[in-house]
């Protein structure tokens, strides 16, 4: 059993209106040394199977559903977990 921790965010070249607003607001509140804000989404999936197969599967899920690869990039980590974790 693996826990996939997936991060999806806009590619650096894409303007992110939410990040802009956050950065501008921080600057207005005095945190003007914030140089960059990245807003993203975080997903956790629990998957059974061997590591190579799960890795390929998560890649496919990200490519087709969790990220829009026109504008977004993703990365993920896989952590082995015991089967009992499902019911947590």
């Amino acid at each position: 059993m693996f826990k996939a921790k997936i991060f999806v965010n806009y590619k650096p070249s894409v303007l992110d209106p939410k990040a802009e607003v956050i950065q501008n607001t921080l600057a207005r509140l005095g945190d003007d040394n914030v140089q960059h804000v990245l807003v993203g989404k975080y997903f956790e999936l629990l998957l059974s199977g061997d590591e190579a197969a799960v890795r390929a599967q998560v890649d496919r899920i990200c490519d087709t559903m969790l990220a829009n690869i026109n504008t977004e990039s993703y990365r993920f980590t896989l952590e082995p977990v015991s089967d009992g974790a499902v019911t947590e």
Partner: peptide, 17 residues
């Protein structure tokens, strides 16, 4: 249609959010 790849590009949040 953009998500399905039938049209190019994508639609983001309005700049006003």
């Amino acid at each position: 249609l953009t998500e399905a790849g039938l049209l190019p590009g994508t639609l983001q949040w309005n700049t006003s959010l």
